[in-house]
Amino acid sequence: MLNLRAIKCHFQTNGQIVRAVDGVNLDIVKGETFALVGESGCGKSTLAKIILGLAPITAGSMSFAGEPLIKFNKRFRRRVQVVFQDPYSSLNPRLKVSTILSEPMWAHGFKRDEVTQRLELVMALVGLQTNAGNLYPHEFSGGQRQRIAIARALMLAPELILLDEPISALDVSIRAQILNLLQDLQDELNITYLLIAHDLALVQHASDRVAVMYLGRIVETGPTEKIFASPQHPYTQALISAVPEPDPTIARNSNLIRGEVASAIEPPTGCHFHPRCPHKIDRCTKESPPLVAREQVQVSCWVIGSGDLNVAK
């Protein structure tokens, strides 16, 4: 459905070049939930902006449903929508909910009664009461606002919805409600999701396939089940084991990696992860490892390629 090839996004700040996204390939299949996971600064948000046409690409190409994407025209706009993290910032406080929801359809020149019909249908789908349209965003709680944001994304009946951290700003007791709603909508409407998240437990629960990003590059990608069952890249391993489990009997595993994510302004040479990697060899500091298929998973690591990592494990 959506294909990205060798996407790069470099931009300048204070005369320095930030390599936010540095050669990413992605293929999202119709009907699936594809998750993009990584820590802050890994480039996942920039990649989201690129897909939405909100950030320019330096190099590479994109195609949607087989057609190359060069200009973000209205036809594409109808087919890809987004739900952002912060339900307070995504709704204009000065507009009524019905205006917020209708705006995408107005922009595409739909007739008045078409909009009204769709409005009622979508509000019912996300579980909003019919009188909600006459209220303003501040009259809703965070969870309800996120329902409104989801409803807005559904108005144009898109094929792909980009979910940018859709539940991380919500209260813990609300998160499951929204997550279940998103799953129901997918089952009912056959929408494809691109889920961008930092929460690995959420990614494991909600996605079919996953790509792990580190400093602008994908280090490992494949079926979610496979990757969580046997992560291969040292970074994926560290990331998964660092997640604090809601189970006090599991000991904290903190010895996997040290240090912090390097800067995207001057990323390390070779493999971007090598300064923090416990298994690095000489080659890692010099050459950047390509994504190589190993069973159903693709991994970008020299050490795994040479088969030495199993010893280290």
Binding site: R78, I100, E103, A107
Partner: peptide, 17 residues
């Protein structure tokens, strides 16, 4: 920088609007 401006752009809303 508010998300609702980005959302309007994503929905294809024109700049004057």
């Amino acid at each position: 920088e508010r998300d609702y401006i980005a959302l309007a752009k994503v929905a294809g809303v024109s700049t004057p609007v």
